[in-house]
C-alpha cells in the first residue's frame, strides 16, 4: 500500500492538526472549548482511513469511515455537550499541574514518541512510521488529561483522546478486518461515554460535585 503524493501532504497536515489539537486540549481549561476540540479531532480522524487506505478503498470501508465520522465527530461530542449542560455548577476543567506544565508534558510526550519511533526501526508499512509519533503522542495526551484533571468530565475527554490515539495507530492497517476491530472499539467507547455521562449526571445530582478528589472518600 502506498500513499499518493497529494494525499501524503494532506495526511501530514491532518496529523499536524491532531497534534495541535492535543496541545490545545492539554492547555484548555474551559469544558466548552475541550468539547469542540474533541469534535475537531473526531472529524479529522474520521477522514484518516480515506488517506491511509489510498487505492485499497472498498465500499464497506467507505461505510465504516462514514460511521466513524458521524460517531467521532458528531455523536460523542453531542453526548458530552448534553452531559456538560446538565452539570451544575458548570465546573471548569482545572488541572492539578497547571496549563503550561500540561502543555510542556504533552511536548515531552511527543518527543518521547518520536524517540520511540526512531527505535522501532523500519516498519513494513511506511505509513506506520508516519503516523506512529502522532498516534502515540495522542495516547499519552489522553492519559495526561485523565491523570491531571480534577473534574470527571475532563477525564472523559481524556478517555476519548486516548481512544483517538489508538484509532490513529490502527489507521495504517485500514483493511476491512482491522476496521471492524476499530469499529467494535468505537462502539465500546460510545457506550462507555453514555454510561459515564449518565453516571456523572447522577453523581452531580447526588453529591453536588464532580470533583474526583471527593470520590476518594468513597473508597474502603
Amino acid at each position: 500500500m502506498t500513499v499518493l503524493p497529494v494525499a501524503g501532504n494532506v495526511l501530514e497536515a491532518l496529523l499536524g492538526l491532531v497534534i495541535i489539537s492535543d496541545f490545545c486540549l492539554l492547555g484548555a481549561e474551559r469544558s466548552r472549548l475541550c468539547i469542540r476540540l474533541v469534535a475537531l479531532q473526531g472529524v479529522i480522524l474520521g477522514f484518516m482511513p480515506v488517506f491511509a487506505a489510498g487505492d485499497g478503498m472498498t465500499p464497506w470501508l467507505a461505510v465504516a469511515v462514514a460511521v466513524f465520522f458521524v460517531v467521532k465527530g458528531g455523536m460523542l461530542p453531542l453526548l458530552l455537550w448534553h452531559t456538560y449542560k446538565k452539570l451544575h455548577p458548570r465546573a471548569p476543567g482545572a488541572s492539578y499541574l497547571g496549563n503550561t506544565a500540561s502543555v510542556l508534558l504533552g511536548l515531552a510526550a511527543f518527543a518521547f514518541s518520536l524517540w520511540l519511533n526512531s527505535r522501532l526501526g523500519i516498519a513494513a508499512n511506511p505509513l506506520f512510521s508516519h503516523i506512529f509519533p502522532t498516534a502515540f503522542a495522542t495516547i499519552f495526551s489522553g492519559l495526561l488529561l485523565i491523570t491531571s484533571r480534577r473534574m470527571a468530565l475532563a477525564q472523559i475527554f481524556g478517555y476519548l483522546v486516548m481512544e483517538n490515539g489508538i484509532y490513529l495507530l490502527g489507521a495504517p492497517m485500514a483493511q476491512e478486518s482491522a476496521v471492524w476491530l476499530e469499529f467494535s472499539i468505537l462502539m465500546d467507547i460510545l457506550v462507555a461515554a453514555f454510561v459515564m455521562g449518565i453516571a456523572l449526571t447522577h453523581i452531580n445530582r447526588a453529591f453536588d460535585s464532580t470533583d474526583v478528589e471527593c470520590f476518594a472518600s468513597l473508597r474502603d
Binding site: 492539578y96 499519552f140 492519559l143 495526561l144 485523565i146 491523570t147 491531571s148 484533571r149 480534577r150 477525564q155 474526583v212 478528589e213 470520590f215 476518594a216 472518600s217 468513597l218 473508597r219
Partner: peptide
Amino acid sequence: LQTGLVNLYILYIF
C-alpha cells in the same frame, strides 16, 4: 499507593 484517586491509578498505568 491506594489513595482512592482515579487520576493516580491512571498515572501508575502511564
